[in-house]
């Protein structure tokens, strides 16, 4: 008979035990199949519960984001405040780790839609509908900087599910986002306004908005690719 009750086992799975007790539970579970089975049942119930209620992108978030942004009466921001040197630094992604939203399970969020024509950027299915931006994502390299319309790519990386993903910036719309290659286009993963330079402290550590950084951190499998690997991925159609 195990000396650990259900509450202790739950606390172990929730990270709510002190280190010594946690080690004691683990050691007992390693030697006691019945205890290990009880832990596994509780663990699977947790996995199923989280799968039952994922935090995920919802098209209605865009309307709520506009409602939230409604109180912002500051003048329009100047375009293109991105630091391209940082975007060209593959390992710069790590800066986002500390900014990731706690409990950010699905790794996807639609940020504030403050573009004059936000509906034209993404279609209802979550695919990028802006043809210029699709072309930029398909062909442009980070080293190219922005195109004539202010659209540009930043980081390119492989996601944990094998998809190719790229961050982008639309300077004229003052938006930045993350898109991953899907069968029929680029699926939006995160989209957020780029704050004005005098806006807030939050942007000091990075030039990507927090929702985008959080999405990158939750999806990236390793590091962002080098410039040479970016060319190879582009020439292979990001497939």
């Amino acid at each position: 008979m195990s000396r650990f009750d259900d509450e202790t086992l739950m606390r172990r799975l929730d990270g709510e035990l002190d280190a010594e007790t946690a080690r004691a539970v683990d050691a007992s579970a390693a030697a006691d199949d019945a205890l290990a089975a009880r832990l596994e049942v509780l663990r699977r119930a947790g996995v199923a519960s989280r799968a039952a209620f994922p935090a995920m992108v919802d098209p209605r978030d865009a309307d709520l984001a506009r409602l939230i942004a409604g109180g912002d009466t500051r003048p329009a921001r100047t375009p293109n405040r991105f630091d391209w040197r940082r975007w060209l630094t593959p390992r710069g992604v790590g800066l986002g780790a500390g900014l990731a939203v706690a409990g950010f399970a699905a790794g996807v969020v639609i940020g504030p839609m403050t573009s004059p024509e936000p509906a034209s950027l993404v279609d209802p299915g979550g695919r990028i509908a802006d043809r210029r931006l699709v072309q930029v994502l398909d062909r442009r390299l980070a080293g190219d900087g922005p195109d004539g319309t202010g659209r540009a790519v930043g980081l390119t990386f492989e996601a944990t599910d094998g998809r190719w993903c790229r961050t982008f910036n639309d300077a004229n719309a003052a938006m930045a986002g993350l898109a991953c290659r899907a069968d029929n286009g680029w699926a939006i993963q995160a989209l957020a306004a780029v704050d004005s330079p005098d806006g807030e402290m939050r942007m000091a550590a990075s030039d990507l908005p927090m929702p985008v950084l959080a999405a990158v951190d939750s999806l990236i499998a390793g590091d962002a690719v080098s410039a040479a690997d970016e060319v190879r991925a582009r020439d292979a159609g990001f497939r």
């Binding site: 935090a55 995920m56 992108v57 919802d58 978030d61 709520l64 984001a65 939230i68 942004a69 109180g71 912002d72 939203v101 409990g103 950010f104 699905a106 996807v108 969020v109 639609i110 940020g111 504030p112 957020a192 306004a193 704050d195 807030e200 939050r202 908005p209 927090m210 929702p211 959080a214």
Partner: peptide
Amino acid sequence: QSELVALLPR
């Protein structure tokens, strides 16, 4: 505002 938007999925 930014944090509230980021919270919407949760």
